[in-house]
Amino acid sequence: MWWLYLYVGLSTAGILVLGVLAVRVFAEVQRLAGQVARSTDDLTRAAERLSRAAEPLMERAGDISRT
């Protein structure tokens, strides 16, 4: 009968370990999602700056091709 208590105790400990690991994974996923959001914002701002910087070149290229 003692083996039954052992199995129940081990399975409970296993479930607790899995629960702790799940919480750690959730926290890391949240942190990664924040980093991805910041990177996306940075890339968007960089693309907007590049677009603004390229506008004069696009206008000049249009003038050159018409002459």
Rank of each mutant, 00 (worst) to 15 (best):
W3H: 09
R38T: 08
R24G: 09
G14T: 02
T40F: 03
E59A: 09
A46Q: 14
A46H: 04
V25A: 09
L43W: 03
A46E: 13
A37T: 10
R66A: 15
R38P: 00
R24C: 09
R60V: 03
Q30H: 07
R60K: 09
V8S: 02
Q30F: 06
A27D: 15
P56H: 01
V29H: 11
Y7H: 04
V23K: 11
I64N: 02
A46R: 10
M58S: 14
Q35P: 00
F26G: 14
A37R: 09
D41M: 05
V23F: 08
V25P: 00
F26P: 00
G14Q: 06
R66T: 08
A46V: 03
W3F: 10
A33V: 06
V20I: 15
L50E: 14
G62I: 05
P56N: 01
A46W: 02
V8I: 14
A46D: 13
Y7P: 00
T44N: 09
L43T: 05
R49A: 13
M1L: 07
T12D: 05
I15C: 08
G9C: 08
A27W: 09
T44L: 10
G14N: 09
T67V: 10
A13W: 06
G34Q: 11
L21A: 06
A47Y: 03
L57N: 05
A22T: 05
G19W: 02
T12V: 07
A27L: 14
S11N: 08
D63K: 12
R38S: 12
S11M: 07
W3A: 10
L16S: 11
R66I: 06
Q30Y: 03
G34D: 12
L10C: 08
G14E: 06
L18I: 04
R60Q: 15
G34P: 00
Y5P: 00
D41W: 02
A47W: 01
Y7T: 06
L16T: 10
R31D: 13
S51I: 01
W3I: 11
A47D: 08
F26Q: 14
A22N: 05
S51R: 13
L18A: 15
A47E: 13
L18W: 04
W3P: 01
E28T: 07
Q35V: 08
A33H: 07
V23Y: 10
W2V: 12
L32Y: 04
G34T: 03
L57T: 04
